[in-house]
Design a binder for these strands. Sequence first.
DNA 1: CTACGTGCAAAGCTTTTGCATGGAA
DNA 2: TTCCATGCAAAAGCTTTGCACGTAG
Lengths: 165, 165
Amino acid sequence: MSELTAMPVAVPPVDKFREFLLTKGMRLTPEREAIVDAVYASHEHFDADVWVEKLERRKGGPRASRSTVYRTLSLLEEAGLIRKVARSNDREVYEHDYGYPQHDHLICKKCGDMIEFPNELIAEALELVAAEHGFRMSGHRLEVEGICANCSRPPQRLHRKLDMI
Amino acid sequence: MSELTAMPVAVPPVDKFREFLLTKGMRLTPEREAIVDAVYASHEHFDADVWVEKLERRKGGPRASRSTVYRTLSLLEEAGLIRKVARSNDREVYEHDYGYPQHDHLICKKCGDMIEFPNELIAEALELVAAEHGFRMSGHRLEVEGICANCSRPPQRLHRKLDMI
DNA sequence: CTACGTGCAAAGCTTTTGCATGGAA
DNA sequence: TTCCATGCAAAAGCTTTGCACGTAG
């Protein structure tokens, strides 16, 4: 997630989450808080296993079991804090959906890289389509598949000068 | 798949498939043919299990095992005859990608209905984005999520006249 | 005292794979 | 004879769930 800049947010994710939980009569436990913190510590894409690995046998700080991680990710999604962007290696890939501008992804079939791009144009087009169909749109998932610039470039030698001889 | 009209195709799917298999040194077996026929018998969306159920213990006509169905669907996808459109109930959902105009889907979270819409605008936007990034696009998958017109309409009585009293 | 949460292990699912058998070229 | 394919059953992998135990309120 290198191209787009994070937007400053008024309410920190944790608070947003606590709020959401309240409306459902649930609590912000240390485990849940640990997961939100972890997830929002960086803007990288991630899957459930990333946090299971880090939180299950953690030394310092609160731990969280595999079940709790999965359960909490579902809650975070429901709360609108994260969203599923794609599938990779049979795993759901998530990213922040709060405090971050709308975008979609070009996914390289070769190296697996995910390139973000802002999607205003597409979002507008979708608004139109939805309106036409009386469809109350709540979100979308767009995965564009292909080969990225790097991977489609023919392999080059490290020392360009040699080519000029 | 009710909104868009099928386009007449010069080469029938089976032939297209046979052609594809040839280039890979593979054969069009009765099992494979049965699966293509089944898949192209209607324009409905489908998942692997649909055909496993129908073909595994079929009485008349050629059968095909679960493995063969999965393997053949992969081949059909590779051949460009079908494509994955979405996931539903943890299953990949496919549709025809040959002899059918390009489109994407509005998916109703309530009734699960998938509404197709032509996607020229979006395709164009994607061409642009891809070009900007030197990305060689080979396809995309767009799932628009929300509530369809039917499901968002408040429940109505069958006899409208009663409402007019 | 009641309701919500956690962790563990087991179950659930779809999809993939190894392997022996069978058949086309 | 030599590959390619099939079918069966087992494996793989992620994700979900049942259950007993804790604990906040």
